[in-house]
Design a protein around this nucleic acid. Structure first.
Lengths: 203, 203
DNA sequence: CGTTAGTTTAACCATACGGTTGACAAATAT
DNA sequence: ATATTTGTCAACCGTATGGTTAAACTAACG
């Protein structure tokens, strides 16, 4: 926060905290563990971030600001609904493969602390559904897609894309797949999910 | 486990533990808090369940044995795919309204402890996808539904039904709904989700 | 080369937490 | 009636945990 290069330590801490918090959650994470992962003394965590809660919030904001733009491609982009669905599905899955703990982290912590979302709303870039609502209404009117509520459609798009990552242990257990086959299944979804949604709504 | 009426205390503890664990997770829950909610001394928890871990596992098994039969209606029922989807969607949403913390609880703890699923697999009634696979293959062959992989279809059904409950704070934040409107939105899904899926796969 | 401001560490501290113990009451068996 | 087992509690224990402190180190600058 102060001068020139706050790189190094402060960022190393954030990076280590990200890994630990996203894997173990606020409650499961230990300050000592974060310090160890960062290869520094525990006092440094407090020196740069004051408290566990504040360090956590830094991580959470950081994570949310990665996720939000992804959702905004569905909500605010200028392409047609069909293109949006195709692009989002492909991009989001690619994105999440790089950040596997991110969605379950955000969703779990939001469940434990629902008022968090209010703080997020203030920030610029927070996903807003208004434009998408208009677009759906328009495309329903001119007959490109079947009548559907924009909110429900948005939930469905999120659900089909995000859920498999959040529930992967459960899914792998039930379907009986090893890591590799599951990875392939997810890879297939890059196109399958889009087709599924488009079949569901196209006229 | 021992004699006749192990009601009262042992069950009171389980009930209290359920509430606390499902709301706060294994890491976030405190033994004292569970004891307080049960209105008894903390020693009783250890007297009946030995350790926090074991009490937690009792709660987890209990929760999972509620969820499993729900999933089995999709997998093992004798009705057509279309009927299964309609029934599951309606029943599952009704079910979850009664147990709102259940899906996020199971999914979060399974993420923190993926090997848990292996213990679950041993238990009778653990969901198995084999029958469903055959059924989908058959209905694809005779042309009732479009070609689709049974695994992907199963994931999609779960995703569309379960996700809205897991991610409800996020969804409510983005869509900008109060509790009441969100409840209505969920109510609408009892039929909308089934229609959506059937549109997507029906020939 | 001494001063100063920022950075890092080891040693501490207070408390919270899971778990144990021993005394005692209530129920059950003899 | 009395011994024995089972259930319940208050007090206690050892350790883990988030957080603090004071001293040492480093680098910039006069």
């Amino acid at each position: 926060m102060s001068k020139t290069k706050n790189h190094t330590t402060e960022e190393i801490i954030l990076e280590a905290a990200k890994k630990i918090f996203q894997k173990k959650g606020l409650d499961g994470a230990r300050m000592q563990e974060i310090a160890d992962k960062a290869g520094i003394n525990k006092s440094m965590l407090h020196y740069y971030y004051r408290s566990k809660q504040m360090l956590f919030e830094a991580v959470f904001n950081n994570a949310f600001s990665l996720l939000a733009p992804q959702l905004n491609t569905v909500l605010n982009d200028d392409s047609s609904i069909e293109d949006k669905i195709k692009n989002f599905t492909k991009d989001y899955i690619t994105f999440i493969i790089k950040h596997p703990y991110l969605p379950s982290f955000i969703i779990h912590e939001l469940n434990r602390n629902p008022e968090f979302i209010n703080k997020m709303k203030e920030q610029i870039g927070f996903p807003n559904i208004d434009k998408f609502k208009n677009q759906v209404a328009l495309e329903v009117e001119n007959g490109t897609i079947k009548p559907i509520d924009a909110q429900q459609l948005f939930i469905n798009i999120m659900a089909l894309n995000i859920f498999p990552f959040i529930a992967s242990p459960l899914i792998q257990g039930i379907i009986g797949l090893d890591k590799k086959s599951f990875k392939q299944l997810i890879e297939d979804r890059k196109t399958q999910v889009a087709d599924f949604i488009i079949n569901a709504i196209k006229n």
